[in-house]
Nucleic acid binder design. Structure first.
Lengths: 190, 190
DNA sequence: ATAAATGGAATGACTATTCATTTCTGTCTG
DNA sequence: CAGACAGAAATGAATAGTCATTCCATTTAT
């Protein structure tokens, strides 16, 4: 087993345990056991638990952002770009529920307090959405509300709906997804 | 000092510490110290930490529902009732930021998931919001979406906006509040 | 053989909860 | 009315458990 494999096993075990049980249901001993590795071994790959957790989060953030950026219809009409972002975000969250749960755990913990408002977007990521909103406002397509409010109207319900789906409170099929995105559009469009 | 006073001191200390530092920044020893009480004393009033936390949450929930139900325009048009609920909820959250932060901590923890699950699967009598949505759908005023989705569209952005205000990212004045509620109405109305 | 990697018991810090003891409070008695 | 007394309330040191992290003997790879 290569060095990289073992590192991946640890990352995966930690992601899975934290997603399912929260940070406090994922002691290092259990992460080690799940990864098929001894407790001490984790510390050859990660400085400490914080480091391990941040490593997972930052790689997830990159992945999600690439997923959204892929085939992004740069230069196309506002609505088309809005649809693309909505669909690829939902697509990712539903395809990777464990990753989604992890991100939520992270955001709602001391680790994530600083970037709470930006949800899945760091500085560079925010630009594309900010850009979309500002351009939409200039074209009188999108309501003239502060950007954080537009973000709340846009992302809040999408994320909530995905969580409800993953927790089996509802079943999100393609039709329902389309109607949610439409309702979201109604909220932000003029 | 009366028995009730001491119980209140403990509840208040726990609310404050948990709101500010999260559940894990609020050990029983610190709660006791903040309340000006010995650690063991807490256990004369609460079975354990879980019990204490749930007690705080459920009393907050009661308070919020009473605040919303006060002057509720029962029997008036859907939109009027929608406006009342939105306004009184925002009013409460902004007036009691510490309580708001506690509720957020609670909701985004294993406690909150259990609580939502109970509410979703075990609820018999409909709450005021469910009633509003169902009646609105019958009258073809509100979109025909599952109730959890309508809730997400309704509450998600309101709560996010209040958080942004409390964290000083935006300033919610009466005009902005009115426009947010309007955008929310656009999301759920047909 | 040598160095790197690994295992897992040991360590020390921290926590919720308990319980033997003390303090308080109001009642009864002579 | 003083003082004894019972039971409730409060205390906080002790307990039992958990967890992240370290250490070094052993194994594995080169």
């Amino acid at each position: 087993m290569s060095k990289t494999d073992k590192r991946e096993l640890i990352l995966h075990a930690a992601l899975e345990l934290i997603a399912e049980n929260g940070f406090h249901g994922a002691p290092m001993s259990t992460i080690a056991e799940t990864a098929g590795v001894a407790a001490g071994t984790i510390y050859r790959y990660f400085e400490n638990k914080d480091d391990l957790i941040r490593e997972i989060y930052s790689s997830l953030e990159d992945t999600i952002w690439s997923a959204i950026k892929e085939h992004y219809p740069e230069g196309c009409p506002i609505r088309e770009r809005f649809l693309h972002i909505s669909q690829s975000l939902i697509g990712y969250l539903l395809a990777f529920p464990m990753e989604f749960r992890f991100i939520e755990q992270f955001q709602n913990s001391p680790y994530g307090v600083d970037c709470r408002r930006e949800k899945f977007f760091g500085k560079k990521d925010k630009d594309i959405v900010t850009e979309l909103f500002e351009e939409g406002q200039q074209q009188q397509i999108i309501k003239d509300l502060p950007l954080p409010i537009l973000s709340a109207l846009f992302f809040g319900p999408l994320v909530d709906a995905c969580r409800d789906h993953i927790l089996k409170f509802i079943n999100l099929d393609d039709d329902l997804i389309a109607r949610i995105i439409e309702a979201n559009w109604d909220a932000i469009r003029r």
